[in-house]
Design a protein around this nucleic acid. Structure first.
Lengths: 239, 239
DNA sequence: CGAGCATCCTTTGTATACAGAGGGCTCAAT
DNA sequence: ATTGAGCCCTCTGTATACAAAGGATGCTCG
């Protein structure tokens, strides 16, 4: 089944933004989100014709989308048997964090050297009141994650290094695949807020080494928490 | 970032050709080499039809090649006016080295922790005799660069982190575009050999911190040398 | 003479038809 | 019953035809 040619695809998605994005872009975004959200779990086989029909584009833009996903490391090619969503094992998570350590520490260093204090002072206030946010249920947790995104954006912007930001984006893409597991652990989130405050203070103070070390500690704790969540998850599945 | 697995690559493939590679792969490799070697300088405009005709493939595989080059950061898309080979300014080089610092230091750390001493002891011997190599003219210099590649490969292998290796590969891709400038500076190469020896010794000793610091120093010197070479080059052009 | 607009042309974006490679399945022989 | 070979069928790789978008140019009107 094909949708023939889509004229001004008006209103299929809820928020959608109504921008006239290209078919390949649409396919890329949809597949990416589906992989990241776990709707297409690790190991899922992708067939060009099948996916093209499902998304409603022809094979050409779909191929472009797959190519980008391969560059992202989210999909791998098989010989003559289509493509697969890449696996993400515990070992891979450890490796990912080794890379993340290097990148985030450098980003924190650069941010401490080049930051606009006003930006981080404003962020500081928000993180101080983060524990209150966490008492507001699911919605508060969502807003807390948004806050973390803002911090990361502020650090990236202050660092002003496109190459570093690009590498970090790649890492964060993979992280978001596993973040669902540890999501919503109140105790951990409260501790994380404290650690983030430490990082912010170091950046405000312009203390690059402290910012790097605080980041190191934070990521160590984060990894520990993630691994524990996975163990717990595995134990629950075994029951 | 790419890679992940695919370790069938046995050997460095000296000539490699005559494999039945796909048209898109051919187009990608050719364009990549041409950009890296400077045959297609920064700012060169690329037109699909034109390049497809030149390389001898149709537009479809060429588009795939361009897409990969965009992922690599070697090419950028223009709105309705084709594609361009990306510019590589002094500022970009500084930024690239900031990322490289983070990655190579981490790689050195991991290598020191996980290395097989025998591999690095063998490399050590070769680097001890590197100064002799440099007296043998252009051919010796070429073998010296191969030696550096071997060291990088050994460090990557010891680190055993595909994500980190992938990020480093991306950085090295961009570096090779500017390496031509500083190539063949005997004084610098001799100093670099000493710095490499220090890194190797730290890895053999299993001293992660020393390996990281030695790498930091080495890259600092390397950047200084590269920037000086560029200044000199610019001065020569101005004459 | 200048500015705004319409048109054309160039170049990318998309669809589809065709070719080739690779694996799985079946059938037969031992 | 098991194993081997050969065929078939599926799926990707490639080529080409068509559509649409964006910019440059020239024309006209003020």
């Amino acid at each position: 089944m094909t949708v023939v040619y889509t004229q001004t695809d008006s209103g299929v998605r809820p928020v959608a933004a109504s921008e006239p994005v290209s078919a390949s872009e649409r396919a890329y975004r949809q597949l990416r989100v589906e992989i990241l959200d776990g709707e297409l779990p690790s190991g899922t086989g992708l067939l060009e014709v099948e996916q093209a029909a499902r998304i409603g584009v022809s094979r050409t833009p779909l191929r472009a989308a797959i190519a980008r996903l391969i560059s992202d490391g989210l999909v791998a090619g098989r010989s003559g048997r289509g493509f697969v969503v890449t696996e993400i094992s515990v070992e891979r998570i450890r490796e990912l964090y080794e890379l993340r350590q290097a990148l985030e520490e450098q980003a924190a260093r650069l941010a401490a050297q080049r930051r606009d204090p006003a930006v981080f002072l404003a962020l500081r206030e928000q993180f101080v009141s983060a524990p209150e946010l966490l008492r507001q249920g699911e919605d508060g947790i969502h807003r807390y994650y948004d806050l973390i995104d803002e911090l990361e954006l502020a650090i990236d912007t202050a660092g002003a290094n496109p190459y570093l930001v690009g590498a970090l984006d790649a890492v964060r893409t993979h992280l978001s695949r596993i973040r669902r597991l540890a999501r919503g652990n109140q105790t951990r989130l409260r501790a994380a807020a404290t650690e983030h405050l430490l990082i912010i203070d170091a950046i405000i103070a312009g203390d690059a080494n402290l910012a790097a070390h605080a980041t190191h500690v934070h990521l160590h704790q984060s990894l520990t928490s993630v691994l524990a969540a996975i163990d717990e998850d595995a134990a629950n599945r075994a029951d």
